[in-house]
Structure formats: C-alpha cells, structure tokens
Design a protein around this nucleic acid. Sequence first.
DNA 1: CTGAAAGCGCTTACAG
DNA 2: CTGAAAGCGCTTACAG
Lengths: 345, 345
Amino acid sequence: MRPRATIADVAAAAGVSLSTASVALNGRPGVSEATRERIRQVARDLEYSPSLRARSLVTKRAYSIGFVVQSPATVMSADPFFGSFIAGIQVAISAAGYVMVLLVSPSLSQTEDLYRELAQSRRVDGVLIDQLRVNDRRLELVRELGLPAVAIAPSSVTLPLPMAHQSAGGAIVRLVRRLLHLGHRDIAHVAGPPDYVHSIERRDAWESTLRQAGLTPGPLIQGGFTMSAGQLAAEELLALQHLPTAVVCANDLAAIGLIAGLQAAGIDVPGRVSVTGFDGIELGAYTTPKLTTVQATPDQVGRIAASMLLELIDQPDRQPWAVEVPLGPMIPGASVAPPGNGSDL
Amino acid sequence: MRPRATIADVAAAAGVSLSTASVALNGRPGVSEATRERIRQVARDLEYSPSLRARSLVTKRAYSIGFVVQSPATVMSADPFFGSFIAGIQVAISAAGYVMVLLVSPSLSQTEDLYRELAQSRRVDGVLIDQLRVNDRRLELVRELGLPAVAIAPSSVTLPLPMAHQSAGGAIVRLVRRLLHLGHRDIAHVAGPPDYVHSIERRDAWESTLRQAGLTPGPLIQGGFTMSAGQLAAEELLALQHLPTAVVCANDLAAIGLIAGLQAAGIDVPGRVSVTGFDGIELGAYTTPKLTTVQATPDQVGRIAASMLLELIDQPDRQPWAVEVPLGPMIPGASVAPPGNGSDL
DNA sequence: CTGAAAGCGCTTACAG
DNA sequence: CTGAAAGCGCTTACAG
C-alpha cells in the first residue's frame, strides 16, 4: 500500500497543530466552525483516513467484537440461522465503526481457549455467547477475563450477564396448541441435544403445554438439531408400541429428517402422523408435504444482541439486563392435519 | 478488564531493559539463553500477554484478513460451502496469529465500499475474493487500494492476482461422461446466474464435453444456485417439446429443487429424467432419490487461499501464482439411471 | 550480549 | 479558541 496521509500531514497542510486537527476531525467542541471546515477540507484533499491501530492504542478499544461458533460443520452447513444472525450483528455494529471477528471451533475446550486468546490479545472489546450449554463454562470464563459479553439465551434462564432472549419455547407452545386444537391427544417430542439450554426450553414448553391441557406428555425422543437426528428419531418412534398422532420437533431440520424417515417406512405424513418444526428455514417449503413451523428471527437476535454488547462495552459496570426478541409468525403447511386420517398399522 | 502487565513491567521485574525484554520474548537472536529464559519466566509469572494494538502500530500489520460475503441470506442460508470454507481459512491463519474479519454485504456496490473501508482503516492486511463475477470491479479496486488479495476462481480464468482454483468444471465433465456412459444422448444443463465466472465454467464444461462426444448440447436453462431456481428450471424443462433424458445442474441445491419440481409434475426421477448436482452437500443424501454429485472441498479451498494470502502479505510484490485445489470423489446416487426406463409423455 | 532513544499515529488533559 | 507535551505499549536500529 502506498504511504497514507497522517493527521500530522493534515495539520501541517491546514497550518494548525496536531491537537486542533484531531479535535476538529473528531467533531469535538473547542474549534471554530471555520477552522473545523478548513481542516476537514484539507483532510478530504489528502484522502486522510485515520489509522485505527493508532486510535486503538490510545483509546484502548479494538473496535471489534468477537463471536466463536462451535462445530461449524453442523451449525453452519445446514442452519440458516447463522447467515441472518451475523447479518444482523453487522447492521448493529457497523455504524459504530465496529467489525466482527469470527472464529470457528471444533470443540468446547477449544472454544474456551479462543475466547481467552481474544481477550488476552485485546483483539475484541466484547463477545457474543451463543448455543449455551447447561453449566456453560464460558460464563465463568468471561467474568474471570473481565470480557464484556452478551448471551443469546431462552427467556426461561437467568444469567449474570445481559441477555437477548428469543423464546423458541413460545413457538413450541403455539404449535402444540395448534395440534391440540386439531384434536391430537398423543403428541410426541423430538428434542435437541439435552445439554443445550434451548433444547431444554423447547422440551419443557412441549411438556407443560400438554400438562396444562390435562394430558400426559407422549413419547420423548432424544434427538438433535440435524436431519440425521430426525431420521434416527423416526426409527425410534417406529419401534414404539403405537405411533403418536403428532410429533413436535425441536427444529425444522430434525422435522425434515423425521418426515423423510417416516415416509421411507411407508408412514403417511400427515395422514398417519402430523409433524411440526421450528425456525422457518427455506427448505421447509420444499419438502412434501410442506412443513408447519414458526418463523424464527435470527437477524433481529443478532442485531439486538450486538447493540446490547456495544452498550455494555460503553458501560462495563452496568447491571445485567435482558431484551426479548419477538418471534415471527406461524407458517402453516400440509405436514399437519387432524388425527385419524390414516389407517393404523 | 483489570490492568494487564506490559512489557515494561516484565523488563523491570526481570531487571533488564525494554528492548532486551522484547528481543527475548520474540525469540530474536541477541540475548543469552539464560536471560531469555529468565525473562520468559517473569512474563509467565506476570501473565504477560503482548498488546496486539501496540505491536500493530509499529509493525504496520493488522494481523487480520478480511472476507466479504455477498447476499448472506442466499449464500449462507443454504450453502454449506460457507461453514467449511471459513473453518479452512482459520486453520491456515491461526498459527500465524491472524484472525478473520467477516463482513456481509447485501449488494455489489456495498461490497466495494466495505473492501474500501477495510483497506483505508487498515483493519486487515489482505482480503479474499470469492464469488467472482464477469468483469468484477473488485479486481481493479484492490489493485487501486494496494490491498493484497487472493481470488477463489475456476481454473479456466486468469487474473492479475494469486488464485486458488477449484475446478468445478472438472466435476461437470466427470458427471456428463458418466451420463454418456449410461447411454444418455440428450443431456440438458441448468446453469447458475450468467454473470458468475463459476457459472460459465460449469456451462462450458457441459457443452464442450458433449461436443467432444460428437453430440449437440441439449437445452440450456438459465437457472441459479438455489432450490427455488431449480424448481423454476423444472417448469421450463416441462414446457419444452420433449424432455431431455438427463439434466446436469450447476450445483446440488438447484438439482434438489429441480427434482422436487419434476416430481411435483409427476415425472419420475431417474426413470424418466436423470439428475446430477455438484457440491456434495448433506441434504443430497436425504432426497429421494439420493443425488448423484461430486464432492467439493471448500475447507481445502479456504485453507489454501488463506495461506496464499499470508504469503502475499509477506511478499506483496510477488508475481501472481495459482494453486489447484483437488476435488473430492463422485458420490453416486439413485438420481441417475440409464435412459428409457420411463414412458414418454 | 545489553541499554537508551526514537518512533509508529493517534488522543487527551493542560496551559496559554 | 489553539498549541506543546505526554503517553498509549510496543519494536527496531544504533551504540556501547
């Protein structure tokens, strides 16, 4: 890169001191409007652009936030959550001159090391914590490192740090009620991995909604958030004494895998079994039948979580607070129908 | 964050000068082994970790590379390429102490602005250029900005900058030959958007392989890289005088959409029409029938492109060079069969 | 083999 | 309203 103009060049060309140039360019009070405009013009003429490194050193800010995504193969390959999520983050931070450093990690322990490195090298001013586990050690880690952090977590949990809530549980409640309304009484759940707090939230939502309706929750299958988990769940269901009339899945991918698995075994969906998902991924519109689901809003989750993080960076001692991110609408699809349309095995 | 030890603290505690501490800690020659070890021990005791900002200012390095991904909704939502690609990048750069700054952009013109900002603020030492268009203005832009850049591009193009080649064209050749071997003579192509160089490479590969076999290339459908593009392509094919016996799609997603579209119209795949994809995404194993495709290796593309970029950053005046990234194997699936198994319309 | 000094490009009190 | 000086935390010639 060719040599760039520095603020010293601007000051010299404008015939003022370094500090005056700095004050003028940063819009701080203490310079006459005439001088300020003159200095700005000179800066433009010289194509001056401040060096972030130098500014970083003195303001003690990296102007970056960090995000570590685990098991990228699984999370990003198939989960549309990710693209919209980081697009939302960028919307929130770019106006403040921030960028996102993205790291991928193959394992939990490496994730912790990556957060540690980010903090120690002062690469970032704060981090986002996603995909929270039960007893997640990252919470303790960021506290210990003094690293500002915002967590994305279900509304049901309370953490000692600011949280952006997306209530997937609320979506599950809606879907279960829809199935109840259609007449289903035997509603199973294909859960996510049990060590994720958002798996637990969804399972609890399924269970409590059924209990509130005076029903005993049907079969609970430990599944996962992937298509292959859904397909395995189909095998488990088929091995049961009798099939439930409906299955509420933890997310769309599992639901799509489940439908594929059921269909491969000759089970009609929704004639014999109704299936619901959660996320509203594009793929759900391409399955046969189309998937009934609730639209998640990952872009808004990213936007809100990131702007919370910027606030926290400005006020590191602020008491933790929480913001609820609204869900999208229910997307009806032909994967759901009243029970009893299909013949018994 | 609590105050951190600086190199001055380490030097004082070890009873040496700043420069000696710096030299010792950076492993540069000029200190006795005894002093070096003593200084290292003191650094460990003080939990010293160098400030990247300060080092950046003096070494004139950001220790970051940039990557701008366009239309994240489309690219990342469905394309598994992305997750593996950035995982590969990180593998290549983390050992050198680099991280990746990821930006998303909704449009071409904004992409250019983002590259410009990255360069002007010296946020990054270089960038990766992906999803190359015909007459892509980013090539001129990085030259003008003096920003080191490596492009990911098909083997068929030659650019004035270093390139990591992944020959999707080679994959298409393999797939067309497989269809020819099975007896197909009427082989259509669902192409990607015509302004992407990798769309053109794939179309050319389809066309030239057929010509080499003495055949006239069948219908060419301008499609896209998404499922919905594939589904639209199905409608176009169905509107033709007669259906080809096989369709080579630009990627897996288009192929999956095409299969869905054909099946919705009552066309048997592969009985009536054989279909192939490219990428080897997980989803292809879940369609009925399973997709015949060739496995791409995005992790290796990322790894190789990123390490080329690090080399270029070290030697900015190096002459452009290119590295071929090997493709994965063909993945056979039931979406392909000999022609003539289905009845004519 | 080791130390004193300059400098990277900014910002920020502090004087005038 | 403006300028001179110090300092952010490092690295790197240059002397000794």
